[in-house]
Write a protein that binds this DNA or RNA. Structure first.
Lengths: 112, 112
DNA sequence: TGAATATTTCATGATTGCATGAATTATTGA
DNA sequence: TCAATAATTCATGCAATCATGAAATATTCA
């Protein structure tokens, strides 16, 4: 809504706005709440481990993924709530200044 | 789904991932299908006209906004379909690799 | 045609983001 | 304790992004 919120959302979008990170979060989303070990993700995406760490840290800093250590492995999982919040922020205020119906292309006509 | 698509989506997210552009597209979304003249948007966001053009061009290149000239003015409007497509791409494959129920935090449990 | 408004284009410099390779830390098991 | 695996940290160089100010283009109207 306000400037601060736009900054926060922009930070999250910046975190998502890279092919490797986008592929990573979609793999993690598909893997569900358990998540994936960093090494496994590294193999699936064919990305060097250190490079993957670099990108996962950006996602984590934005609150889009979380990690936990389990023995040798570090598991990452997607934070679904954060992803959904982004969605709403983008189209949530759609057509709020318009009186007439926005037509079928308006997101708010589709939702709920 | 595939690499190419991730690149396209990443490009759109990159276009969104800036406070000015985020504020701009939300103003345009709120304004509905008619959109807003560039100068009016420049005033509302308190951004210099040339700077705004810079950012609007990024959004347009990503297919997130469109423009039309109307006399002296150039109107920009949000492309709602493109915004919705982003949403789906982010959470669409959620938990696809998981058998059991993902719980209330899973986006796919909320949708539809 | 000439002035005023609206918008875009261009040029510059500073900052940030990213890829790569080498080194380091943490954990497990022999 | 030593070796092997998993993951992170660090250092370097390069490319892309952004803010800013000046100049150019398009449109309207007197």
């Amino acid at each position: 809504m306000n400037q601060d919120n736009d900054d926060i959302v922009a930070r999250k979008l910046t975190a998502l706005a890279h092919p490797i990170r986008l592929a990573a979060i979609r793999q993690l989303a598909a893997a569900g709440p358990t998540g994936l070990a960093a090494g496994r993700l590294s193999e699936r995406l064919d990305v060097a481990p250190n490079a993957l760490t670099f990108h996962l840290q950006k996602l984590a800093a934005a609150g889009l993924v979380e990690s936990r250590r389990e023995g040798q492995f570090v598991y990452y999982r997607a934070v679904f709530d954060a992803l959904l919040a982004l969605t709403d922020h983008l189209v949530g205020a759609c057509c709020s200044e318009v009186e007439e119906n926005c037509g079928p292309n308006c997101p708010t006509s589709h939702r709920r």
